[in-house]
Design a protein around this nucleic acid. Structure first.
Length: 768
DNA sequence: AGGACAGGTAAGGGTAATAACAAAAA
DNA sequence: TTTTTTGTTATTACCCTTACCTGTCC
């Protein structure tokens, strides 16, 4: 593969759901995506998908009423200097105005949250009863459950933590407090009275859970790390002296009470370590079966009181007992078979089949059922973890992307000889740390700007595809009777929002598909400006294009574009892709475009050409969407997402995958694209694939690729400065966070420190 | 007196990450 | 045989929920 700086050739693609843009009070760009997920929030959901529409809500409150926001995406610059940005998106429920009922709570909350600054206490609308209630009693819980409330349990996701942190930050800011610990540990209950309730905004968790989380987070005696032998000794003494007074013991050791309590649980004095003797195993099995009234050979994975078991076993702690049982003994005794590579592939496929958008939605018990080589649901889950880690940056990519990547990876492994793979990979410039199997350390890149790339003067500068906006018409209502919405960027009274300070639309060759170009000097691909110049109107006009794809292109392309273009859309969903542009520095003429429903784009340069390799030297990757596919997706593909609400599908939500591709890939893509003139390849949902060689003639897969460059960025406005940039940790706007399991967060990771080691990156994600 | 509120504690089930160790491959 | 790699197990630092408790205020 080309020898061009490998680092820089990596291209990242990002997939997003359909969204709309808004800007929050802090100047952050927020993409709202109408959609699905509404579901889960309230169990009672009727089969009828909530009425969806575009919701372009701006800061003005009105948007609340007529728009029904659903998904929110926050795109924020993550770094002041490099202007790189990431997009995080979450889904929220969307409901028609009149349907407001409990199910809409989410939405309301979000909107309100958006205006958190004017901290008006929860308002009258009912806020999530869950996040506003302490409910520590079983009665409270049952009561809420009976009312149809559901809430999140278990480990907090990164997104939730982001929200929490962001909420806290806002709270502090609003009150001029610098350190949250002041509130948490120093203030009186009265002084902090609305603290927890306020920061619980957007979190579908009981207030008490939020409270616990916060305490742990800010307790510096927590997370102290490994206990030293000295500490263990001291702990033993203190234990004798103070019994179970964990607070006292913890204080003496400089550890939190729960930490010392947990540590003590691990060290019963009679505990053995290391290999279990046969006698111990026999005893364990006996005790487990006895206490659970089961027979040897039965599979027992739940309902075991491990403390009681450990007590009876005598020589092992409860954790040792549990671990031994769930990871080995029970399986052994019930005639389990060995786990094979095939099982592994199977696992990936089965998980993929589940179509869940969130790993937490996987029912491991169900998955493990009847699978003889699976030792226990818990074991299977941990197995999954080890598989997942084959993708170096698994934490950064969305779940669907991860699955896709793993599938591809396994296919490659199956189809290629190890060495071949390795060779190809290295040739492609994708680093593969592992010379043989090539399995390890594959990395899927999230749209992020590459640090290194920036340093090289490279040609890539020319390639910038900062933003792509796709408007998809909903196939379900061809008549577009319903939502013919007007998206007015900027002045409309209705839902207005503004995008790019200036941009151009270019026909792509596909009817209804245009490329939106932005000038680079705006600084950002996506910008919400106050200037009333740009208006994008989507109407129900029948003639409306199936979709409008707007791309922010490199400056060069702007030249030939005409100023006014009208685009008609009668569809509710908008897909916006944001991509980092490489070196957009070169200012480009900025033209303003107005999209009208009736007008056809004029004077637009032929997009295909612009997409040529020249225009986009090595770096740019363009994503394509095919109208057909898109439509198909909308109407027929529901099955694909069985796990999600049908509404989502209808809306044509697309999930964008993020991947990294080599520049050659990009080029190919581009070429391909130009060939396809007019045909936009649908971005296939899980398209990121990992390929070993750059050379894949198979671009047919139509993955959408966008090239991110470290220079890409999103700015809310020209005057935006670094101040307005949210810290990395708060990329996810809490406000937007969706409650409930349905939240779809894509590409939320951002900062990932590890990304730096692009050397290890070996991903090859192909765009098939 | 009773109940809601706002915390708080301890117990215990569970997870994620890693350390240790063993088996296999080079 | 020795070394390196890979795969299992064991360990452990933390996490989270549950059940129950406490003090204050109305």
């Amino acid at each position: 593969m080309s020898t061009v700086e490998e680092e820089s050739d990596k291209v990242t693609v990002e997939t997003v759901n359909s969204v709309t843009l808004t800007q929050d009070t802090e100047g952050n760009l927020i993409l709202h995506c109408p959609q699905n997920e509404a579901d889960e929030v309230d169990s009672e959901d009727s089969t009828e998908p909530p009425h969806k529409r575009l919701c372009l809500s701006s800061e003005d409150d009105q948007s609340i009423d007529d728009s029904t926001p659903c998904i929110s995406v926050v795109a924020v610059p993550i770094s002041d200097n490099d202007q790189s940005f990431e997009v995080t998106m979450t889904a929220t429920t969307e409901v028609a105005d009149d349907e407001i009922n409990e199910g809409t709570v989410t939405q309301i909350q979000i909107l309100q949250n958006e205006q958190l600054d004017e901290i008006s206490p929860l308002g009258n609308e009912e806020v999530s009863a869950v996040s506003q209630a302490w409910f520590t009693t079983k009665e409270d819980k049952d009561s809420l459950t009976n009312k149809g409330h559901k809430w999140k349990q278990g480990m907090w996701s990164k997104e939730e933590i982001d929200i929490l942190m962001s909420n806290i930050e806002r709270y502090l800011k609003a009150r001029g407090i610098k350190d949250a610990t002041e509130i948490i540990f120093e203030m009186s209950k009265d002084e902090r009275k609305d603290f927890y309730r306020t920061i619980a905004w957007g979190l579908n968790r009981p207030l008490f859970a939020v409270y616990r989380r916060v305490l742990r987070m800010y307790d510096d005696r927590n997370h102290v790390g490994k206990y030293t032998p000295e500490e263990i000794e001291k702990l033993k003494e203190l234990r004798i002296k103070h019994g179970n007074d964990w607070a006292t013991i913890g204080a003496a050791l400089g550890r939190s009470a729960s930490s010392v309590k947990d540590r003590c649980r691990l060290m019963k004095d009679t505990c053995n370590t290391g290999k279990w003797t046969e006698e111990e195993e026999r005893r364990l099995a006996e005790v487990v079966h006895e206490l659970t009234s089961t027979e040897p050979g039965d599979i027992v994975t739940q309902g075991v009181s491990w403390a009681a078991v450990a007590e009876r076993v005598g020589t092992r702690s409860e954790k040792q007992c549990r671990s031994k049982w769930l990871n080995y003994l029970n399986w052994k005794q019930s005639g389990g078979t060995e786990w094979t590579k095939e099982d592994e592939i199977n696992l990936i496929l089965r998980i993929a089949e589940l179509e869940v958008m969130d790993e937490n939605d996987i029912n491991w018990d169900l998955l493990a059922e009847g699978w003889s080589s699976v030792r226990s649901p818990q074991w299977l889950r941990s197995k999954w973890w080890t598989i997942k880690r084959q993708i170096a940056n698994h934490k950064e990519v969305s779940f669907p992307v991860l699955i896709k990547g793993l599938k591809q990876l396994n296919e490659n492994q199956k189809n290629n000889l190890g060495h071949q793979l390795a060779d190809n990979q290295s040739g492609a410039g994708l680093s593969n740390t592992n010379s043989n199997s090539g399995v390890q350390h594959v990395q899927i890149r999230v749209a992020r700007l590459e640090e290194n790339a920036g340093n090289s003067p490279s040609p890539m500068a020319a390639l910038q595809i900062p933003v792509q906006i796709t408007h998809v018409s909903s196939t379900d209502s061809p008549a577009a009777t319903v939502d013919s919405e007007t998206i007015t960027l900027n002045s409309g009274t209705l839902q207005t929002f503004e995008i790019l300070p200036s941009f151009h639309l270019q026909p792509t060759g596909t009817p209804g598909t245009y490329l939106l170009q932005t000038s680079s000097n705006q600084g950002l691909p996506l910008t919400l400006t106050t200037s009333p110049t740009v208006t994008l109107t989507a109407t129900a006009a029948p003639a409306s294009p199936e979709q409008i794809i707007v791309h922010a292109l490199s400056p060069e392309h702007l030249l030939n574009t005409s100023d006014n273009v009208t685009v008609q859309c009668h569809t509710p969903s908008v897909i916006i892709r944001t991509v980092a542009a490489e070196d957009i520095s070169s200012a480009v003429a900025q033209a303003e475009l107005t999209v009208d429903s009736d007008i056809q784009p004029t004077n637009l340069t032929d997009p295909p050409t612009t997409l040529e390799a020249d225009a986009f030297p090595d770096e740019i990757h363009q994503s394509k969407l095919t109208v057909e596919e898109q439509s198909a997706y909308n109407e027929d593909d529901t099955s694909k997402y069985s796990g999600r609400s049908s509404t989502e599908l209808i809306d044509g939500v697309m999930v964008r995958t993020e991947e990294e591709i080599s520049d050659s890939d990009l080029k190919r893509e581009e070429d391909c694209q130009s060939d396809l003139t007019g045909t936009y390849v649908a971005e296939d949902l899980g398209s990121p694939t990992i390929e070993e060689e750059v050379d894949q003639s198979a671009i047919d897969d139509e993955t959408v690729l966008i090239v991110p460059s470290r220079r890409g960025f999103i700015q809310t406005s020209d005057d935006i400065d670094t101040e307005s940039v949210l810290p990395l940790t708060t990329l996810t706007d809490p406000i937007l966070q969706h409650h409930g399991e349905g939240s779809n967060i894509i590409g939320s990771s951002l900062d990932s420190p590890d990304s730096e080691d692009s050397k290890d990156v070996e991903d090859l994600v192909s765009c098939h």
